[in-house]
Design a protein around this nucleic acid. Structure first.
Lengths: 252, 252
DNA sequence: CGAACCATTGAGCGCTTTCAAGACTCGTGG
DNA sequence: CCACGAGTCTTGAAAGCGCTCAATGGTTCG
């Protein structure tokens, strides 16, 4: 690796900025003035990349920062008292994590990198004082928390009412939609997480994930090659994911 | 009904106030000055009681107000595309509901009274402008949302990892704890919701709830009489709820 | 007092899990 | 370069937990 410019971001020659970040319309899509945007930009810390398997923060640690994923992907999970982990979400580029720490001042979950990942760290104290000045920023943070709540509640519905095929279909479509919003293909993508992670997230056994994947392939719904996935029959997947009742699905 | 004092709250002779409300330390436990408290008190609307089965707000409606339960209890639930409902939470006195509407400006769920219930309505626009002035209030709202997220994530763990007995034990202890925080007995209380609601919330069939309740009674863990419940063996219930692994529970 | 709803109990079944074994991937070191 | 091994993924067979179906008793409320 050849020496490059002196920089706070070891692996990049130029310091990235919110103003030029291609994700800024997704990350904190505010209608901030240039001046306000500068102030937000100033408090953001951009550290070195996190390697696969490393932790961004850990359940029980003091809630000090909110993070935005710049590149890569993470999973967040809670630990049961017996040590078992329950994955509560996967986080792709532009998504904010850590806001749940507002509850009682400590992170209620652990965040682990699924691959090499870079994040923007937003220290809480500075975010707070900035939010004191900028009502739009404040509202945006609450909107983000609202989104998180809605996600978790739709997961509750999934875990309590959907069968294995419906869960997997919902999962694939959710990921597809999130990639699409970032300008990537909605039908052809690479899953950053393992089958084990998927099974944990969806409340199923790994073997069940495998079986549903192969069943979907036999029925022409998807095509898979390891972590690569192609969605071929969106309509049927949507029907499955939507938890459609049997009658409506009956072929006669 | 005899005529009483002219008042904004038709069914009460005297207008309640945050300052004198016994729940104020739970509802929005801020360290607000008397003056600030007055301002909050001024924007709160206290309407007539909601009867059992009536809706406080409905999924898809415009997000206009946050509500604090004064007396009674409600359930909130989301509707799947096939019309099935998934209960996402029960809400007892002093608890705030509706904050999830911050996501996209409409309530992501419906709130229905489980019994005759009175609420304090806090109109959003006025709450917002007040929050602009009072950082403490703002932080408290975010803390409430953080609590909601943590609750939903622990439900995800319950729904995805716990068996029927563990779910019911967790549920009973959660309710007990919430009553205890309000000064009521933690071991002897009345469940405001039906078995069907419990089963829906816990992702089980009604029959399973019944069976677990009777099994718990036979084992001396609880005593039930309709909706009345007495928790008799907190230790064992806690063990169950904690998702303790089998070895630790094995009697030899 | 009847109707609607709620709660309980039993029997059998089905979806998913568990257990087990083999195929594949990938990083590492000989 | 290839072999090795650990981890991941897939597939099969069997078992179990909770669901469905069904019937009865209990409760509430007009």
């Amino acid at each position: 690796m050849k020496p490059s410019l002196v920089s706070n971001t070891p692996l990049r020659g130029t310091q990235p900025h919110c103003q030029t970040c291609s994700l800024n319309s997704l990350c904190l899509p505010l209608s901030l003035s240039d001046n306000d945007m500068d102030r937000l930009d100033d408090i953001i810390r951009r550290g070195r990349p996190i390697q696969k398997g490393q932790l961004l923060f850990q359940q029980g640690e003091e809630f000090q920062s909110v993070y935005a994923v710049r590149t890569g992907a993470l999973k967040t999970y809670t630990l049961a008292s017996n040590g078992e982990e329950q994955i509560t979400g996967f986080h792709l580029a532009s998504e904010l994590i850590g806001l749940a720490g507002y509850d009682n001042g400590e992170y209620p979950l652990t965040a682990k990198a699924l691959e090499t990942t870079t994040v923007c760290e937003i220290p809480l104290t500075q975010l707070e004082s900035l939010a004191d000045d900028l009502p739009d920023l404040r509202r945006q943070l609450m909107r983000n928390m609202g989104t998180e709540i809605r996600h978790d509640q739709s997961m509750m519905l999934l875990l309590s009412k959907k069968n294995a095929e419906e869960r997997v279909a919902s999962f694939l479509l959710d990921i597809a939609q999130r990639y699409a919003r970032r300008g990537f293909s909605a039908s052809h993508f690479r899953l950053p997480m393992s089958r084990v992670d998927i099974s944990n997230y969806l409340g199923l056994a790994v073997e069940t994930i495998s079986r549903v994947f192969t069943r979907f392939q036999k029925n022409g719904l998807i095509e898979t090659q390891g972590k690569e996935v192609i969605l071929q029959d969106m309509d049927t997947l949507n029907e499955l994911a939507g938890l459609v009742d049997e009658e409506a699905c009956e072929h006669k």
